[in-house]
Design a protein around this nucleic acid. Structure first.
Lengths: 245, 245
DNA sequence: GAGTGGTCTAGACCACAGT
DNA sequence: CTGTGGTCTAGACCACTCG
């Protein structure tokens, strides 16, 4: 019965179940809860921290969805083995790199308003030839080119300068512009880079590249961004954690 | 206020919230609930179907996590725009192909017990040189080679013949063998195929291939499978749906 | 102010795993 | 049999959005 302490702040705007989940997660990351260790049963835990059972359940559920905990009826709740690789989140590559202290840098190659090509209009669910904001950027990490990022956004959704773009991730800018992204659909593939692409990325001609297409929806279900990105597979891969039934 | 009917079976072992979620999802897929449509508020819906509010909430939550619905406080719950691309599930490629009616076929190249190489032992969290089951298969769809699948499993976890493997997906076999997979961590990248790999996959030499490494855990948090797969990007890509905060 | 989802509680009963 | 998580209910209060 692993015990660990946690301070919950009932006056905080952060939900109790989330505070609780964070505390458990912390106990796991710091080794106070070892892989394979059993948490006590929900009711005991709930009492221990002065929560109701549903609230404690909700906290545990959050970590189960993240792939950190596993539950078995009649047995208990255990910590999953092995280092937890963070799953793909709804954040930009830029944010991820900042957190990982990878000295990200962005150079803006293109920043224009243009009539949407047919495929872009289809992806953004706009009429053909509707004006859209078109961006092409290169993302560097530790001074090495990492990716070519091409994005299309509905016109007037976001007013940004090239300076803004070089300093912040697109998702950051969208968020501070009041856009609330909620759902993103990505497709990941591979292909050889063109001569131009490879030279931008400092790769030999015809090197294999990772491709990612993404459509992002906001709060209201509307499409707010369409992206077509190219990554150097030697420097970047996608990690996903899946949780079953 | 979109209305739609649903029959719930209270005597079924399937949870009510899940039945409800399926019914809503069905209404969306069949167009009875159009993209952008508002669902009615939770309490009204709960009453309409004779459920408590928490149960109805749980149903809606399930679809929000899938990226099908979006909720806004003070406003309501809406259907997300655009076709719902199914997210990556904890199922095998084989299962997916069967469902999509792609006439999958598997040919088993290798099926042996062998001491685990160091990297495999590390991935499976076993001692070095421990015997493991080593599989190499080719997956075909519509008579075209689609992927090379290389897998390592702890010895004695699964007793299978090459015949079994040619008829069923590995996940299916594991499931019927009593193994309950719960969490999988994947890493997706790209590289050029070797001459041998490309020839197996019917690609030109040095074609770019999609790579996927996966570690799967069961119920108890133990590692039950390690896979290193190669896909032809012209025939297969990975789709992921992300849901924010 | 009226309406919405977001959170939290207190309790009940059931299904399953282990003994 | 006992203990665990899984489901479901009834009700309360809060926070946010919009007209």
């Amino acid at each position: 019965m692993a015990d660990f302490d946690a301070d919950l702040d009932r006056s905080s705007p952060v939900p109790l179940y989330h505070q609780m989940a964070e505390q458990i997660h912390l106990a796991i990351r710091t080794g106070r809860l070892a892989p394979g260790a059993l948490l006590g049963n929900e009711i005991a835990l709930a009492n221990e921290f002065g929560l109701s059972r549903p609230t404690m359940r909700s906290a545990i559920h959050e970590l189960v969805e993240k792939g950190v905990l596993v539950r078995r009826r009649g047995v208990g709740t255990q910590v999953v083995q092995g280092p937890i690789t963070r799953s793909v989140q709804l954040t930009s590559l830029f944010d991820d790199l900042v957190k990982a202290d990878q000295q990200p840098r962005t150079s803006v190659l293109l920043h224009e308003i243009t009539p949407a090509p047919d495929d872009v209009a289809a992806a953004l669910k706009l009429p053909r030839r509707q004006p859209v904001l078109h961006l092409r950027r290169i993302r560097y990490a530790n001074h090495h080119p990492l990716a070519i990022l091409e994005n299309y956004l509905p016109h007037r959704l976001l007013e940004v300068t090239a300076i803004d773009l070089s300093r912040h991730g697109l998702y950051d800018l969208l968020r501070s512009g009041g856009v609330r992204m909620k759902v993103a659909k990505q497709r990941i593939g591979a292909r050889d880079g063109s001569a131009a692409e490879c030279s931008l990325l400092n790769e030999d001609t015809d090197s294999p590249l990772l491709t990612m297409e993404r459509v992002t929806h906001d709060d209201t279900g509307r499409v707010v961004e369409f992206g077509r990105h190219l990554y150097r597979p030697s420097l970047y891969q996608f990690s996903v954690t899946l949780v079953g039934r």
